[in-house]
Design a protein around this nucleic acid. Structure first.
Lengths: 118, 118
DNA sequence: CCTAGATATCGACAACCATCAATATCTAGG
DNA sequence: CCTAGATATTGATGGTTGTCGATATCTAGG
């Protein structure tokens, strides 16, 4: 399933973990989860995530997203790249336009890891 | 209840928000939530949180926590301060020792914000 | 009081990061 | 092909952050 059998991606790690408060996290696990949290620990990327998720059909074109911010196009492109490479956004190109879509399972797994076992 | 009636702390913001994917986040809301996520977006702080939560009685002494890491005492103290000031850890001093306790409600609200509305 | 031990603060430094302007790379239409 | 528009990449810059050593502050016991 996964590319490697020896190392888990951040998203894979999150999917298989018990909640943060249930048992002490190993150093390796913590180091694999942190990048995922870093990815969403930015106001612009938070808004990008919620904009994409709330958009019609669950996906949004970069051109729409650019207009929603008072930031340069390269900056938005950079943030989208971070979210995509962390596994939180899927990317699909159609013609000249690029559409992003939230990987809801990854997000909900991450939420469960943080808030689970309340 | 809260110190100010005009501004919400990050923790208060999280407690009253609909999930990330449900509706577009306002700029102000995003900027209040991001610091909370930054606070947990670090491997050491993630392990601190889970160590404290999993400890007997739900609280842990700094002296125990120091021993769990290969880091200097000031560094651990710094991370604990970040977690405490962000509202994720409660702090209580008893004699010479300082005990930290996870604010579970804050954590579960944060988890719901991220993963809610799956 | 004085000392020893626990925790916090300070100052410095290197690594990282958000942002921009400039530029490159695509793709569809003409 | 050539052009126009959409998105990505690059390089530079200022600001933030994780870490440490040194030091300060507290507190209990002697």
């Amino acid at each position: 399933m996964s590319k490697s059998h020896l190392t888990l991606t951040p998203v894979e790690t999150v999917a298989c973990c018990s909640p943060l408060v249930a048992a002490p996290l190993s150093e390796e696990t913590a180091e694999r989860i942190a990048p995922l949290l870093k990815a969403i620990a930015d106001p612009v990327r938070l808004r990008l995530l919620s904009l994409v998720a709330a958009h019609d059909g669950g996906e949004a074109c970069v051109c729409d997203l650019n207009d929603a911010f008072d930031l340069s196009q390269p900056t938005i492109s950079h943030h989208l790249k971070v979210l995509h490479e962390s596994g939180l956004l899927d990317r699909s190109k159609r013609g000249v336009w690029v559409y992003y879509r939230v990987r809801r399972e990854a997000l909900s797994d991450l939420g469960a890891l943080i808030g689970g076992g309340l």
